[in-house]
Design a protein around this nucleic acid. Structure first.
Lengths: 223, 223
DNA sequence: TGTCCCATGTAAGCAGTTACATGATTTG
DNA sequence: CAAATCATGTAACTGCTTACATGGGACA
């Protein structure tokens, strides 16, 4: 396995800095990963892409594009690695400039997030369908969420292996944030399931009530 | 089950092709509101726009555009209302076709949502800044979230007034979904604050530990 | 022989944001 | 006299998704 360095010239970096590119959140997410260690675009797409990521997911098409932007802005550099018996690859590293930008972004607070919960929106309009259908919808969602929790657990174990560490880690560790975020993602999903089950319970009670009423009317007819 | 879902999707796609319009989530969110009663675009923009909405928020510019799309697709109709001493307005109503589309959308399940938690991403990269800075970031976020909870409470009360109802309502009520969704939004924010405080606690312990160590070294110098 | 893995990219299009634009009436 | 409220829209842009494109090696 031979490797060849293709560092960008100072002139190119200076030109990019002048253009003053604005970096989207996914850019900082990628730099955050690179701050832990060098990665190829492909590796990043495996870590950041669904269903492997529960904090900020992105497709490979976006990742490659943003890596290009980051490189042009001088926040990351890459070196071409020629491999026999495998396609060539570009290994990305974060620059000092990139680290500074990352720290600045972290310090920007508070961070308001747009509220977009499609399933909750469906719950709002659930009254337009029958309780039976509503119950089926809720149960499908519970099943999906359980699968997602399983994937979060896989991600949790994978992260320990990847960084050769054991969770939980203390707040002084550079992996604490990752641990805390995965934990939070899992807890949020668990809370969502509790919410779904609370709704399902009430739907079941309603259907039971209807069934009882039907039975009683059947009964009165029969006797 | 899977084939059933695929059939539904294929049907919907065919329908969309006929009308030539694909409806984004915000469209169903708007129809959901209109299913509760007629509204103007402006009223919808007040209900759906930040900081008044915690389920699916949208700006007025998008709302007016999507209402146009919905009208062209035959999912809603509107009537021009001429007012003296106020600008004229368009009052939108949902059509039977719109109701059918809304029901179909609700029944499409499960509903996976992209995972995008910017603040959690910042927590992941928090190790790049000092514990003091990290603590400040966390505390700012707690403050923001408390403000958001206050706004959710306002929204909760407003919804009761708007629909002339009193929460909690039973699952058989058409306002149950709205009540449940607002409750869920609030609970999620509360859980987030607990998570922030769990992180903050550990940061405080670390800083306390550092301060003690500094004091001890001061002490040894002094004596 | 076909499918998965590795590895990188481009093109077209949709969803959502920001900014621009107008204008009358009410309220402090 | 300024600001807020009511009321509706368009234009330019960014972020993200979907689909298209390529190509060798491993493995069943």
């Amino acid at each position: 396995m031979r490797s060849k360095l293709n560092k960008r010239t100072a002139l190119e970096a200076a030109e990019a800095k002048k253009t003053g590119q604005k970096i989207p959140v996914i850019g900082y997410a990628l730099m955050g990963r690179l701050a832990q260690g060098d990665q190829t675009g492909y590796q990043l797409s495996l870590i950041m892409g669904p269903p492997r990521n529960f904090i900020w997911e992105a497709k490979h098409s976006q990742i490659y594009t943003v890596l290009g932007t980051l490189a042009r802005a001088g926040y990351v550099t890459f070196s071409q690695v020629i491999q026999d018996s495998k396609p060539n690859k570009k290994v990305y590293s974060i620059t000092e400039q990139g680290r500074a930008a990352l720290r600045e972004w972290v310090l920007q607070s508070p961070t308001p997030e747009p509220h977009r919960h499609e399933f909750a929106m469906k719950v709002v309009s659930m009254w337009t369908v029958s309780p039976e259908d509503a119950l089926r919808v809720i149960r499908d969602q519970i099943e999906l969420t359980n699968t997602e929790i399983g994937m979060i657990d896989e991600h949790y174990n994978e992260a320990q292996r990847r960084y050769n560490t054991t969770f939980p880690v203390p707040v002084t560790s550079r992996y604490f944030g990752l641990y805390a975020a995965i934990k939070q993602a899992r807890d949020t999903k668990l809370a969502a399931i509790e919410w779904y089950e609370w709704i399902a319970e009430q739907l079941v009670d309603t259907l039971q009530g209807e069934a009882d009423a039907a039975f009683e009317s059947d009964d009165s007819k029969a006797t």
